[in-house]
Nucleic acid binder design. Structure first.
Lengths: 109, 109
DNA sequence: TCCATGATTCTATGATTATCGAAATATTGA
DNA sequence: TCAATATTTCGATAATCATAGAATCATGGA
């Protein structure tokens, strides 16, 4: 991963509402959650929520799919795993020190 | 870790200059690097560099020690490991999926 | 004590970001 | 087609952030 890729990912997570949204989606599993359900859980106004989902989506941390009137958002585990790998890169002067990539790879549900 | 703790850590890393600084310090190992050396490597003006180091330091991602006229900054591996643990928490609907915390714990140089 | 060097603080400026009300768009069922 | 519901876009506002020149502070050597 390039630094130019990592910065937008980190920026997307570096905001309380968005981190909460992301974690809610992570906890929800790969089925995802409709926008309205996220809003209910986190008490965020629709326009604000939409703004943050767009940010997360643009960063590649979440994906969406339409189902009838609902749009389901779900966490993209791969993006997070790549970010974690980037952050732990060179952590010991170039010596590999993590045998396996952290977290779920492949996603486990 | 609380979300209120994680956000400032992520925000500190979510900026190209700071992420570059942090990674330079990670690569430098626990001995750290004097401010001037960091500036040389990354081509950042002293005032700007000082601003970013303060941010990283305030977030707890780096520590500093004075040695004569020089101030050496070094990466705080523990803070990063705690952040990584937080980000991977609940990643599989609450099932633990990472046997050991990612990266160096304890730091290996 | 004075000077040179390393680093930080002050200050101003331009840019980006978060929030949310109101309006617009999209989909479904009647 | 029309009404109801779900979500997004628009627009305005307030707040935060990044940058760097100039001034200041701290340390060590002459």
């Amino acid at each position: 991963m390039e630094i130019k890729t990592a910065v937008p990912l980190l920026a997307a997570l570096a905001q309380e509402s968005r981190l909460a949204i992301y974690r809610t989606l992570v906890a929800a599993g790969s089925g995802g959650l409709a926008v309205g359900r996220i809003g209910e859980q986190l008490q965020v106004a629709p326009a604000t929520l939409s703004f943050h989902l767009k940010e997360l989506s643009h960063a590649g941390l979440v994906t969406s799919r339409q189902e009838g009137r609902f749009i389901y958002y779900s966490a993209n585990y791969t993006a997070m795993n790549e970010l974690l790998a980037y952050l732990t890169e060179n952590c010991c002067a170039g010596q590999p020190c993590t045998p396996a990539p952290p977290c779920c790879n492949p996603p486990c549900d």
